[in-house]
């Protein structure tokens, strides 16, 4: 099930890693380097899934998510946070913000694509903003 996935990430090495992994498993990857680019690309290309970093210049992941959720044409697209959680409360903050899921950095390359495909299959998170276990 090859999918079109939008990857929003400002760090070039991480961008390369994640897009390499996704492409190695046959997905096609759209690349944006900050939230604003990500939003524009999402509106133009309507990807099947968005993977987004949180800390980014110009527009961070939280703000991009607000714009995406305010856009009716993007309502069905799941948005997954890929982030280097560090402090307690970070995960809760991400889920409360309305992301459909999160993957921690450093990612585990052996299982990463599997996790992404599971999110593709699950689609938008139906339940309220409670944190996943």
């Amino acid at each position: 099930m090859a999918a079109r996935i939008l990857l929003v990430e400002d760090n070039p090495a991480n961008l390369e890693l994640v897009s390499y992994l996704l492409e190695a498993y046959g997905h096609s990857v759209l690349i944006a380097e900050d939230g604003r680019q990500g939003l524009e690309l999402a509106r133009r290309e309507h990807p099947e899934l968005i993977l987004s970093d949180l800390r980014m210049p110009v527009m961070d992941g939280f703000e991009m998510l607000r714009h995406i959720r305010a856009d009716a044409t993007l309502n069905a697209v799941p948005v997954i946070a890929v982030t280097a959680f560090s402090m307690s409360g970070d995960q809760t903050r991400v889920m409360l913000a309305g992301f459909d899921g999160y993957i921690s950095k450093p990612i585990i390359p052996e299982t990463f694509v599997g996790e992404v495909e599971a999110y593709l299959k699950a689609g938008r998170r139906k339940a309220g903003p409670a944190a996943d276990p």
Binding site: N11, A13, N14, E16, L17, V18, Y20, L21, A24, R55, A84, S86, M87, K105, P106, I107, I108, P109, E110
Partner: peptide
């Protein structure tokens, strides 16, 4: 603390990640 933790993990993501892709023989 928050910044340090984030900044230290970011390069590790590429180190562990690409080591993984190589070991996966991709």
């Amino acid at each position: 603390l928050a910044s340090m933790s984030h900044e230290l993990r970011t390069p590790l993501n590429a180190i562990i990640g690409f080591t993984g892709t190589l070991l996966m023989k991709l």
